[in-house]
């Protein structure tokens, strides 16, 4: 797979990001369709790349950190694209796209033209495990952005500072609904991915590898978002409190996804 294609894709996402930012932070908000067209083009290119890869390599694009990040960006972008189409509210794109852009740059930087793939990674059970985890992380990313915007808007509303978030964002309720729905869906995928991971680990390593930092990291993620779910349902936590849990959860995801993977290179491997 040619790295140039990946950078062209990145450039298209970057162009869309510029227009999203210009629209959000500009003097007067304009219904600029160009940003949607650019974003749609980037997602379409990305999807085409993913499908083309599956056709060519007969496996999903998930087998190393670079591929996993790339696919994560695709799933998150695709989910957000559908969400924006449905809700007709582009403000979240202003903040999601830069994150995706950075992750895609990291993925391109780590790109290996012909990676050595351990045979176990070609097993469909592994692919489903990774797919579930990526979908969960994608959902948690959406929840993070929604919670962050909800938190910032709530601050401006409390103090009536009437800043850009007050002017540009819809209601607190809007972001809370998105955040909660994303956490619920993400939690489901995370648990499913975790269970499949346990099953796979049992086969690959013949026992549960409790010392694997990924194992602990995912457990913490599930515990954090599980607490988000329970506190909402049982303790009646809404608004800022739920938003802060979601923000903390996402910071931990970034840490586990990037830092742990890059530092503990000898762990969570399948060779």
């Amino acid at each position: 797979m040619n790295l140039t294609v990946l950078w062209i894709m990145w450039a298209t996402y970057a162009a869309a990001t510029i227009f999203y930012w210009r629209d959000f932070f500009g003097a007067e908000r304009k219904a600029n369709k160009l940003k949607i067209y650019l974003f749609s083009t980037a997602v379409a290119m990305h999807l085409a790349f993913f499908i083309f890869f599956i056709n060519q390599a007969e496996r999903l694009y998930l087998s190393n950190l670079s591929e996993a990040i790339n696919s994560f960006v695709l799933f998150t972008a695709l989910t957000y694209w559908l969400l924006e189409k449905r809700l007709q509210e582009p403000s979240m794109g202003t903040f999601i796209l830069p994150i995706l852009l950075i992750l895609l740059a990291v993925s391109n930087y780590l790109f290996a033209p012909s990676p050595q793939i351990a045979p176990v990674l070609l097993d469909y059970k592994f692919e489903i495990h990774v797919l579930c985890m990526l979908l969960a992380y994608g959902a948690f990313t959406l929840s993070f952005i929604a919670s962050l915007l909800q938190y910032l808007l709530a601050r401006e509303l409390k103090k009536l500072t009437m800043g850009v978030f007050y002017k540009r964002l819809p209601s607190l309720d809007f972001f809370e609904r998105i955040s909660n729905a994303a956490v619920d869906a993400g939690l489901l995928f995370a648990i499913l991915g975790f269970v499949l991971g346990l099953y796979g680990a049992n086969i690959v390593w013949d026992n549960l590898m409790l010392s694997d930092p990924k194992f602990s990291a995912v457990l913490i993620i599930i515990a954090t978002y599980g607490f988000h779910f329970i506190s909402r349902k049982l303790l009646g936590w809404q608004g800022d409190r739920a938003a802060i849990i979601s923000i903390i959860g996402f910071v931990w995801i970034l840490f586990s996804f990037l830092v742990i993977s890059l530092i503990f290179t000898t762990q969570h491997h399948f060779r």
Binding site: L153, L157, Y166, L169, P170, S171, L172, D173, F174
Partner: peptide, 9 residues
């Protein structure tokens, strides 16, 4: 406007 920002509807 404030009610709309806080409650949505």
């Amino acid at each position: 406007e404030l009610a709309g920002k806080i409650f949505g509807s």
